[in-house]
Nucleic acid binder design. Structure first.
Lengths: 356, 356
DNA sequence: GGAGCTAATGCAACCGTTTCCCTCTAAATC
DNA sequence: GATTTAGAGGGAAACGGTTGCATTAGCTCC
């Protein structure tokens, strides 16, 4: 009787570079040169033999070994506070595409609005030696110790430390006083102000605000912009309702707004997602949008497009954001000083504000 | 003048296990034992010294080296066809949470409904030696060659190869004739049938269908269920409109539906996302939901909750799906034969169907 | 007091690549 | 024809962990 391999032992050892070398009749180094278009040239004859062996064996280089030797994982991390939010999802997609173009794999993680989770994820990414990290934190001063120690560059995405900046892509240089990481964002304040000005151009005099709360307790630039737009027009601010950055938050904000003694004729809402919830609450109360209450949202996420009515919103240039953030991450600034890049927003006029 | 380190040379080499060992005055092996609660015991005195050294140096084990030595990356991959779809986003979150509980990091990738991208991602995951892969492919027979060669287990998620199966979590054993990977899904057909039966219980006799198209060209089980529900009641099927699984697709489907000569009094829609677009089109045409046209959707994603009117939908048990898929991936079936686990769905009754 | 045991630890091989450095061959130059 | 030179390829040292095996010290038990 012939010795048979154990039936369940289908654990074929992975094909390694040495196997390829053996089959091709060359040294392991040559295989590496071929695979990477390596630092040294290889004769055409050998290159062909190697490629053939690779295909025959189904060889696939081990990324872990490569990362170890190279000191680079060719992975980038990204942490968002809510991956289920269509805006973050679209931002993540843009970043992933940009990264893929440069040969990087994006590790997307969702902190689920929890600081503990965020910290755990940062540690995890640091251990995995990602080559860089995009952070859409809720905190303005996230805990970057682990990253710094591991010497991993970070760019803060969608952070609005912006002070009134007008015009096109602004660049601000910071000193060493800052937390020392680059950040890329949009002009929250400008965008909000423009939205309010647009509502005013529709004749609204009494404009409320539905504002999400950030964990830091800092004043959100969108709120400042809203206020500014109203004051510039010599009007008095309408009611402010604070609620989480969720559909449910927006819904509750809507109910609360309607319970107030005096109802505004228009509201600016700090995110599309909240606006969706708000619209729902408005309809439930039998109100017409925009006739009884006009709505202007913020983000320009895909979900703003097919609500009822369709949401007018302040769109963030997601692709530019992603592209710029990637560049900032891959080419860390020379002087060691951190930069903040701020993009302008664009008004997307649909029906919820009264247009059309 | 004292020699100074070059100002830009802040490239502090990463702290390694050997550094820790040196500082703690023990051998590198002991450090490993402490970090992993390793295979061997360590004296309390030394453990304390090591932990202190780790903290002092900010040591963080290199995951690549660990993966290389261990032969396991402790990463799981997941590919979805559209990460911006709130349903997939919620599924991914559930999977990520389940994986994190077991110490795995989830690599989420978005094939963006492109087969070429899907193939590229699979190759990438195979190279990274993920310990397993969740696949929400659009194809019924995705190209798993790369995975098989790399001996990476796969589970197909949200695939509905289901033949009419009733009742609670069903398990079907397949022979070797199948593609040989496990799959976990929900009873699409049952769910759709239940939705139709519910619409019929509201008195509807003329029920249409808005159906997404899958790439495979196979008949979607939801369509079968819709048909079955109608036939069981002795009714004749309403119009069928086919459109992509997107909001825009749903919107166009709505316009097309209204352009038909005879309008149904209710529709079953194959996904929440399409239903959102459909609602928008209906409102634009001045129709009332559910009075003029009742709508029943499918998925139970978070976005169904705050539409106007709120969507009645067939909810998929996302958490169970994720949990089960993870277990199937981590504990590959013994006999080598693949299993298919199917979960029942649940009707979430809101207002779009006529309830409340 | 020596054999035998256990607990704690150190040594070194291995995981699969990348790449430096050296050797070897063959062609080009004088 | 000898010497230089470039082009190709091989050997082997990292990279930073894990872990089997050997070693040591400190016991107990006869």
């Amino acid at each position: 009787m012939v010795a048979m391999p154990h039936p369940t032992s289908h654990a074929k050892a992975a094909v390694t570079r040495d196997d390829v070398a053996r089959l091709a009749g060359v040294s392991p180094a040559v295989v590496s040169y071929v695979v990477n278009g390596g630092p040294r040239a290889v004769s055409q004859a050998n290159e062909a033999k190697v490629r053939q062996a690779i295909k025959a064996l189904g060889y696939r280089p081990n990324a872990a070994a490569r990362a170890l030797a190279l000191g680079s994982s060719e992975m980038l991390g990204m942490i968002v506070s809510d991956a289920m939010n269509p805006f973050f999802a679209s931002l993540a997609r843009a970043v992933e595409n940009a990264a893929a173009e440069r040969g990087y794999t994006l590790l997307l993680a969702d902190s689920q609005a929890s600081l503990r989770t965020e910290r755990r994820l940062i540690k995890n990414f640091a251990a995995r030696r990602v080559d860089g990290l995009f952070l859409c934190s809720m905190l303005f001063e996230p805990d970057l110790m682990d990253l710094e120690q591991a010497d991993i560059p970070v760019v803060l995405l969608n952070h609005s430390t912006d002070l009134a900046t007008a015009g096109s892509p602004a660049v601000m240089k910071h000193g060493a006083g800052d937390h020392g990481s680059n950040s890329v964002g949009v002009a929250f304040q400008d965008g909000a102000r423009m939205a309010v000005e647009h509502l005013i151009s529709h004749g609204h005099q009494h404009i409320g605000l539905v504002m999400g709360g950030n964990a830091g307790g800092d004043l959100d630039a969108r709120e400042v912009g809203w206020h500014q737009g109203i004051q510039n027009a010599g009007l008095t601010p309408g009611p402010i309702v604070r609620a989480p950055f969720t559909r449910e938050g927006g819904h509750r904000a809507g109910q609360e707004l309607l319970a107030r003694a005096e109802r505004p004729t228009a509201v600016f809402v700090s995110s599309d997602q909240q606006a969706v919830g708000l619209l729902c609450a408005l309809h439930e109360a039998g109100l017409r949008v925009p006739e009884d209450l006009a709505v202007f949202a913020f983000d320009g996420s895909p979900e703003s497009e097919y609500t009822w009515p369709r949401l007018s919103t302040v769109a963030q240039p997601v692709k530019d954001l992603a592209q710029t953030a990637l560049e900032a991450l891959l080419a860390p600034n020379p002087g060691g000083e951190s930069q903040t890049k701020i993009f302008p927003t664009e008004l997307v006029l649909r029906t919820s504000c009264g247009c059309h």
